[in-house]
Design a protein around this nucleic acid. Structure first.
Lengths: 207, 207
DNA sequence: TATTGTACTAAACATTTGTTTAGTAGTCAA
DNA sequence: TTGACTACTAAACAAATGTTTAGTACAATA
């Protein structure tokens, strides 16, 4: 039988295990679970763990203390927005709230921008890119790299100033750093006068 | 003595503990740490744990299996971008990479948009708000609420359709849902024909 | 009706694990 | 040169913990 349906009791215990890990950075012991649910025999708990393991919600390492490991790919969707936001596929009329059924996924920064060592975030200082949907105060996600292609929006350093966010283009021998706002001028420099520090791959704005 | 400086050995062990928790959802045992670092006596490990605890980097629960808990407020800053991105205050000339010294903080979605139950995320379907820096494919962060103020960007349902993102205004008795793109028309409806589902409080774009 | 799955008790067992005692050796600052 | 800190070994102890055996009771299913 390949049943994955959990009983209420099994669901509660799975949720408790995940909650304990979140709060305590470690799974509960069999007896701690038993105490929480007033199960006086460790075998009672072990039966639930057997069921959760058989149904594919946890993994266990035999003989290891606190050897319960929730299968994260499943539990993070089941248990909802614990450290992410629910992404709803559509907002439809009628329903008073966000039904779990419309859930398209959980929004986590790490899923969107996998956290490699070369990524960093930078708060935007001016309005020069407002025409490209990057406003003052926005946070841009940048992949650190010393080169970039034509058309990329880059973080660059000119004249030893702080980093500026502009669109990169090369015309002849010159490097152009173009704003996306007519109030600002394009910066034209020779190669060597411009130090490219990274490419903008994302934007986060809090309004 | 209120020293917080860690030796190389202590740092390595602290990092190992945090890494194991990340990967295994549980802390290592004293003997597992010893095995990793070729320390044959549990007392050798215990000495390091004593030092880490005394210096305030971990907490322990005496007698508990795997009773080591890193002090998260400190370790997440020390160990860097494990589930967040470093926010650099400024990008300056010279430095080849992101120096930890310029670190302004760690970008975590939960810090930006504290995860209350009334928040959700929605992927934007059309271009109608491109003039307000919200493009097709962007993810908007929405606070679910049945009303909104003039000028708010809202998620609304009109004619039982899927949710649409527009700027709200009220002119006389009519409700206006204004796009930020001249290619689209303003939707004008009577109250009761429009169901407001939430207010847009953030935007995330991956390019 | 027999079987399977759920949900437990009670008791004992074996292992894992944290802790302690006793000691060695090196470094560094007062 | 004494003391404090680091960094360990070796051995033993006690507590925490997972596992097993032998049952009971109930509901759903074939």
């Amino acid at each position: 039988m390949n049943d994955t349906n959990l009983t209420d009791r099994q669901y509660s215990i799975l949720k408790f295990i995940c909650d304990v890990i979140d709060e305590m950075s470690r799974p509960p012991t069999v007896r701690e679970i038993g105490h929480e649910f007033s199960i006086d025999s460790t075998k009672g708990v072990a039966d639930h763990l057997d069921a959760l393991e058989r149904k594919g919600w946890i993994e266990r390492e035999p003989g290891q203390a606190r050897g319960i490991r929730p299968v994260r790919e499943r539990t993070k969707k089941l248990l909802g927005p614990d450290d992410g936001l629910p992404i709803v596929g559509s907002v439809v009329a009628g329903g008073p709230s966000l039904a779990r059924e419309n859930l398209e996924g959980i929004l986590k920064l790490d899923d969107l921008f996998p956290n490699r060592d070369d990524l960093f975030a930078l708060r935007v200082r001016g309005d020069s890119m407002s025409g490209a949907g990057i406003y003052k105060g926005d946070i841009v996600i940048v992949r650190g790299q010393p080169q970039a292609d034509m058309g990329d929006i880059v973080v660059a350093i000119v004249d030893d100033e702080l980093g500026t966010v502009k669109k990169l283009s090369k015309i002849g021998e010159k490097i152009h750093l173009e704003p996306a706002n007519p109030d600002y001028d394009t910066i034209v420099k020779k190669p060597g006068e411009v130090e490219i520090r990274g490419k903008v791959i994302g934007v986060i704005r809090k309004m």
